[in-house]
Every structure is written in structure tokens, then in C-alpha cells.
Write a protein that binds this DNA or RNA. Structure first.
Lengths: 129, 129
DNA sequence: CTTGACCTTAAACCATGGTTTAAGGTTTAG
DNA sequence: CTAAACCTTAAACCATGGTTTAAGGTCAAG
């Protein structure tokens, strides 16, 4: 399979697939005699897997670390589970941070509604959280 | 006040203050005869204001847009309130997205616990959300 | 008069996740 | 045979928010 077909079947642009290769996220592709990259059908699943992990909030570096155990080997179920648990914790921390920011935005908003004359920097910076 | 003192009083590195200037977020500073930037005390509040806005989730471009009404003028209370309301909405959308991702991570985790043999890409990519 | 602390600039560099472009080789249909 | 469609590479570019570096000017103390 040439890169164009792999691109169509995964929905990822060919440029991104090449980028993943140069980034070391996927191994260097086999080459046809004309120099074109030649992919195995298994690469479809592998790219979908990467896309799934990305949509779950994993960075390319994290994905790279998860994929790359011994060459040819697959990450163990436990390794992936542990990464997912960590990701849950990270999401929870992110949500907590977001809630705190939301609270601070609301507090600022409240201050402005209660003090409609506060139009300069000094006034606004007087807000305390 | 030279940039070093402004830096100390705001807690922002001088490099960042210069960057804000070249980015157009703050106006070009007055210069002392020796060419050094010379700041007015009001810049302390202005930078603190920027830092506050940043901590509330505003990008430098958003802050720039909010600060820059007519030169010398301050954004109206209504303009700022509207921006804060929009930011609340954006935060809510972000949190919703984060909850959805969390749900998908948990779902994946559940799948792995229920199917401990699923060690290859094809297996994992078979997960449905 | 020299040393150190402070200031200046432009330009390069960092991370993240790519896309775009330029210049060219290959292949396939008509 | 030619044109379109596909492939190759390296390098530049994008956004975001800066920091770091190099090469130099200025200023205060001793």
C-alpha cells in the first residue's frame, strides 16, 4: 500500500504520516523499488491506534514511549492501563485547575458588576481572590 | 524606573517585558538619555493587570485586543465584562470536552480490564465509545 | 581605571504538532 | 507522447509565549 492509500484509509494526511516517521513515532517504512513507501495493512491499525491515543489526550511523546518497548513487541496491557490511570489523574488535575480559574473569572465579573466605575488598571488590579 | 526595577516589582522577567513591547501588548517605553527604557509607576499596575488576565485564561492576543481601544483610553467596564462572560462560556466548553475525554479514557480502561489479553493494536482499536 | 552590574539590539532557539513549498522523479491513462 | 496524479526530499513556515545568546554600551563603586 502506498502512502496515499494509507492516508485515505486512516483519514490522516500523508504529510502527517511522513512526519510521524521522521519523528520516530512509527518505524521507517519499507520501500518499493521506485523508492515509494510501501505499507503493510497493519499500519492502518497502528495509525488508528495513535489517533485514538491522541484523542485521549496523550502527546506524541507519550504515545511514542508507550509504543516503543522492544522492537516488534507490543506494550503490555498493564503498561497501557497504568498510562490510562495516570491520564485520568492528569485530567482530574486539569479539571480542578479549570474550576479554580472559572471561580476566579466569576469573582472578577462579580467585582465589576458591583463596582461599575472601576475602569482603570489600578481598580481592576485591586481585585483579591 | 528602569526595566530591572519594573521586573522586580512585577515579578516578570525583563525579557518578557521587552517581548510584550515588541509584540505590541504594551506601548514602546520612553527612553532615558542613555537609551535605557524609563517606566512610569503606572506600568506596574498595567503589567499586573496583564498577568491577571493571563491567569484567567486570556491569550496575549485577547489581552491586546481588550487593552487597545483608543490610545490612552481604558476598555469600558462593559467590554471587560463581556469578555469575562465569553471566557466563562469557553471554560465551560473546555470542561465539557474534558469530561467527555475522561469518560473515554475510563471506557478504554474498563475494556482493558475486561479483556486482559488485548495486547495488540487491532484489539485496542476495536474499542467502541 | 577597572570591575561588575545593568542596559541595549537582533537573532537564534525552545516545545508542540504539524503544513507548505520547491524541485524533482514515477506512473498511469488516453 | 504527454498530462495528470502520485511519490520523493529538505527546508521553510505556522502559532504560542516566550528565553537565550552574542556583541556591545553605560554607570557606580573602589
Amino acid at each position: 500500500m502506498k502512502i496515499g492509500e494509507l492516508s485515505e484509509r486512516t483519514g490522516l494526511p500523508a504529510s502527517r504520516i511522513r512526519f510521524y516517521e521522521t519523528s520516530g513515532l512509527i518505524p521507517a517504512a519499507d520501500r518499493a523499488p521506485n523508492g515509494y513507501r510501501d505499507y503493510d495493512a497493519s499500519m492502518i491499525e497502528r495509525l488508528r491506534m495513535i489517533d485514538l491515543a491522541k484523542s485521549l489526550g496523550f502527546s506524541l511523546e507519550e504515545i511514542s514511549g508507550l509504543m516503543a518497548t522492544s522492537p516488534g513487541e507490543r506494550p503490555s496491557c498493564e503498561t497501557v492501563s497504568a498510562a490510562l490511570e495516570e491520564k485520568l489523574t492528569a485530567i482530574d488535575a486539569h479539571m480542578k485547575q479549570l474550576r479554580e480559574t472559572r471561580r476566579r473569572v466569576e469573582s472578577t465579573l462579580r467585582y465589576l458588576k458591583e463596582n461599575p466605575g472601576a475602569e482603570n488598571h489600578a481598580d481592576v488590579s485591586r481585585i483579591r481572590f
